[in-house]
Design a protein around this nucleic acid. Structure first.
Lengths: 206, 206
DNA sequence: TAGATTGTTAATCGATTAACAATC
DNA sequence: TAGATTGTTAATCGATTAACAATC
């Protein structure tokens, strides 16, 4: 229970940090709980409560100073993150993830990108080089990766999941449509743009 | 309140349908609330309650027949969906969405894909042809699109949002990192793979 | 000062969980 | 029959919302 609470708070803090970082990039210097609410969909009172539980760093009348806000949230999340993940599949989704600057912002390192297609191996993706899937276990261990992202076609997904589990990751993020079976103790989350969009569309236009 | 309840239920039903459809593709014929729970992350009791509120179509002892389950959920969602959306941006995310079969499965039509890059206009993406952004308002009206997906770089996102609003869509799904400002009455949801993954990672490994 | 927004309390609502009779 | 799973109830917990004093 204690753990569950902390996790849902951490997930929301992560969203606040993303919004605050982007707001800073767009030249804003202060942001209110109401604005954070607009951009994240999280209730404004909830935003204030989440933040105030870690100290009073808002200013009544003017909101939160973005620079301080980012720093504080990074501190709070930092204790529990600074983690490394690997991505399997250098296709559209894999590439979009690797090229996103959001991970670095939250102290999460994408340590390696794998693909099984010889044509893709060796290609540069941002700062990374696509490596052969055969190196998966070795690289996961070397970087101490805690999570693996599956961004391969559905028919290859279970095989990749098995290899990730064997390599020792505790969490899998599945961007394929496949239903993955993993041993107890390993968590799987299916997260693909179409799934997210459909759920959201049902909520919006229901 | 009534409306809010229905919407959250609709979003969950959408996830159940996605899992059931995929299970059918993988050759399964029956599925239990526990299995649906494993694959969606929604509590098994919640799954049973959501489904039983629309009638008793499970079989005690053996679970839900997938074919019947899909049919029933499609019926339930069908009443409120059968909608059309447009996608702006034929890059990695736009392409991933267009090529996903999940939309058709839920009676949602991706009616048009736009891009501003002359090199991309005219390209075939699945069954669609990439069209110039200049046609946006005309196409939104012709297809009665209720939602627009923004899958363009952050610096172009606000302009696209303005055009979507002017064209009359009520919901925007924002896959860029930009913070969008829209008039009251238009909903915006930011949904990008990196954001989703980061939130999920905080939940998993916090 | 006046206006705005935080931090916090209290009330309500929805989700989660355990439990179990009904029944396939 | 025995085993499994649904449909449903009851208890608990977290999220949402309204409200407002404190204060920048």
């Amino acid at each position: 229970m204690e753990n569950r609470l902390r996790k849902s708070v951490a997930a929301r803090l992560s969203r606040y940090l993303q919004v605050a970082s982007q707001a800073a990039k767009e030249g804003m210097t202060r942001i209110s709980s109401h604005q954070i609410s607009l951009y994240t969909g999280v209730n404004a009172t909830q935003v204030r409560r989440d933040l105030s539980s870690f100290g009073r760093f808002g200013k009544r009348g003017s909101g939160y100073e973005i620079e301080i806000l980012c720093e504080r949230i990074r501190d709070i999340l930092g204790a529990r993150s600074s983690r490394s993940v690997v991505i399997v599949g250098a296709g559209r989704i894999g590439e979009a993830l690797v090229r996103s600057g959001l991970f670095a912002e939250q102290g999460i390192e994408i340590s390696t990108v794998f693909d099984s297609d010889p044509a893709k191996i060796g290609r540069e993706l941002g700062a990374l080089t696509v490596r052969p899937v055969a190196e998966l276990a070795e690289q996961v261990k070397r970087h101490g990766a805690v999570a693996g992202v599956i961004a391969v076609p559905a028919q290859a997904a279970q095989g990749v999941a098995d290899e990730l589990v064997r390599a020792g990751v505790g969490a899998i993020f599945n961007y394929s449509e496949a239903l993955l079976d993993v041993p107890e103790g390993v968590s799987v989350q299916t997260l693909n743009p179409a799934v997210e969009l459909l759920s959201a569309l049902c909520v919006q236009t229901g």
